[in-house]
């Protein structure tokens, strides 16, 4: 599977129009010198060798964890990905936690108080939050909180170069809120429908008949409604990364998304390919995780096999 993706990406890179060696050499280099510089750059990048040889070299180094070097910054791509992973994980992690902290109680209440005003309001808000593009919401957020009210910063991780936790949290507020709203909107719906399904089951009626209060019955239903949710959560992560990419871009957050978009603009193939491999691996791992977690959280699946 991984090999197929690697070959696919490599072929894609070779099909690409434009010569990376050309872009490496400044346009304003002296006309006579320029061709020699391009030739030298091509040799340095290994682009003068036959294509199959290039693939074997590339794949061999890939297995050693070497993803090549960025055309523009000359950093090792593997290291670049690692450097950018931290801020992205921080951003996504906080948004996921915050979003679930909102979605779980709201989803439960909406299901328990089904067809009431609360349920309708939660439903309407989540539909609106799902329909609004995250970058437009981010722009509105910057406009209101950074430009008009001047209470929150509009970009970056820190004010100055120093790392300070308070400063970091301050810069996290806007981007995390934008992302968390999307998470909350999506998961409120999942939790609500999962809860409704469980609340309609016979065992809930049995618990209530045995004298359990509404709170205990709800908790029973909630525990069981988590089973399908685990799978949804695992499969949601790749999609969530694309949301983070967009938000990173608008808040100048120095994460993977910003790196990928910058690489896209300057046609930095090694970085783009590295990012592509990263996404592919993430999707495969999340699928595997969804399968494994499903059998872990639901003992019935195990005994059935």
């Amino acid at each position: 599977m991984f090999l197929i993706i690697a070959v696919g990406l490599f072929v894609l890179v070779r099909l690409a129009p434009g010569d990376p060696a050309e872009t490496l050499v400044p346009i304003d280099a002296a006309p006579g010198q320029r061709e020699e510089l391009v030739k030298a750059a091509r040799e340095q990048l290994g682009l003068d060798k036959p294509v199959p040889v290039q693939f074997v070299l590339w794949f061999g180094s890939l297995l050693k964890g070497d993803l090549g070097y960025s055309f523009s910054t000359h950093q090792a791509v593997g290291q670049l990905l690692l450097d950018r992973l931290g801020p992205t994980v921080l951003l996504m992690g906080s948004a996921l936690v915050l979003g679930l902290l909102i979605a779980i109680p709201v989803g439960i209440i909406a299901a328990v108080r089904r067809d009431t005003f609360v349920d309708a309001a939660a439903g309407t808000v989540s539909v609106i939050a799902l329909a609004i593009p995250s970058f437009f919401l981010a722009m509105l957020g910057i406009y209101v909180f950074a430009v008009k009210l001047r209470v929150l910063p509009s970009a970056g991780m820190y004010f100055s170069g120093e790392s300070d936790v308070g400063d970091l949290l301050y810069h996290l507020i806007l981007p995390v809120s934008v992302l968390a709203l999307a998470v909350a909107a999506a998961f409120t719906r999942y939790i609500r429908s999962g809860m409704l399904e469980q609340l309609g089951q016979d065992y809930i009626r049995a618990i209530v008949a045995k004298g359990a209060g509404p709170f205990r019955a709800t908790m029973h239903a909630f525990r069981n409604s988590l089973i399908p949710l685990v799978t949804v959560l695992a499969l949601y992560i790749p999609a969530f990364l694309s949301g983070a990419v967009v938000v990173e871009q608008i808040f100048s957050w120095p994460g993977m998304g910003q790196m990928a978009v910058n690489a896209l603009i300057v046609r930095d193939y090694p970085v783009i390919t590295g990012f592509g491999l990263y996404v592919a691996v993430l999707v495969l791992i999340c699928n595997l995780l969804a399968d494994v977690l499903y059998t872990v959280v639901d003992p019935r699946v195990r005994t059935a096999r």
Partner: peptide, 15 residues
């Protein structure tokens, strides 16, 4: 579970 936006970034970045 493959996010279209990320695939487009990779494809657009290369092609």
């Amino acid at each position: 579970s493959v996010p279209p936006v990320l695939v487009i970034i990779v494809f657009a970045g290369i092609l």
